[in-house]
Amino acid sequence: MPATDSKRSLHRAESVDDSVLEILPEHGFPKLGLKELWRARHLFQFFVWRDIKIRYAQTVLGILWVLLQPMATMVIFALVFGRLAGIPSDGVPYPAFVLVGLVAWTFFSSAVVAATNSLVEQANVIGKVYFPRLFVPLAPIASGLLDAGIAVTLMVPVLAILKLVPSLGPLLLLPLLFLVAAGAAAGVGAGLAALNLRYRDFRYLVPFLVQGWMFASPVVYPTSLVPEGYRLLYALNPMVGVIDGCRWAILGTPAPGIALVGISAASAAVLLLIGCFYFRWAERTMVDVG
């Protein structure tokens, strides 16, 4: 009975035991199917690896783009918002201030956009073979995390030129902050991916959503510009806690406060759950509507 061989791990869901699968219609509230995701984790690794390979195939500068992109935007924003509009920047040079915001923001926004489009791009595979579909929108988030890690690493020497050398302690908290951003991006991305498969209108809507979201986050301006009474409400946007945390960790700006970061993290967790559950619910008819 080879099916019980522990080395074999085909994607199986609610099996009665390890070798018997019962296929039944699903009604009511969806299950996340974490067990199944864990079993097929090697497939997730392959998806992430593929994303990375494809993204930099036939580019000359390759991985350097992860920092070049936000730096190009930084130049524009520094001129427009820093020079012309004179937006304050919590006591650090505006270019550095906006670059840190942009690195965090670029991770979030490109992860959301990539996740949204992922399902439509792979609609054909989804109709031909079964695997845990949640991997499809989640893979670009994970590969984006890797990009973000490289961007941050490359950014530190760039900032050092501006005589901004971060201290090591707070820097170690950066991965946690990026995980919060990844959770929010995963929830939003998974939800939008399912919606996009059903209603292709989302392809046109998402760029506006992302742009609006950027101005609702402290990318080009500091949170200190938001009236104090509204800051915790403002922190419901997960990127508020993430970006403020990143600036504190990298640039040594005033610490954002536990409450603000906590609200952002909780909000990210809620978005993650809503997005994933919605995706699992939509998955029931995904192949039919795709």
């Binding site: 080879p2 099916a3 074999r8 085909l10 199986r12 869901a13 070798s19 018997v20 699968l21 019962e22 296929i23 039944l24 219609p25 699903e26 989804i126 109709g127 031909k128 073979v129 079964y130 029931r284 008819t285 192949v287 039919d288």
Partner: peptide
Amino acid sequence: RIVMPTTGRAIVRGR
């Protein structure tokens, strides 16, 4: 398992 049944049942033994 590419599409989900509306109703009915299948039992599959093995990979």
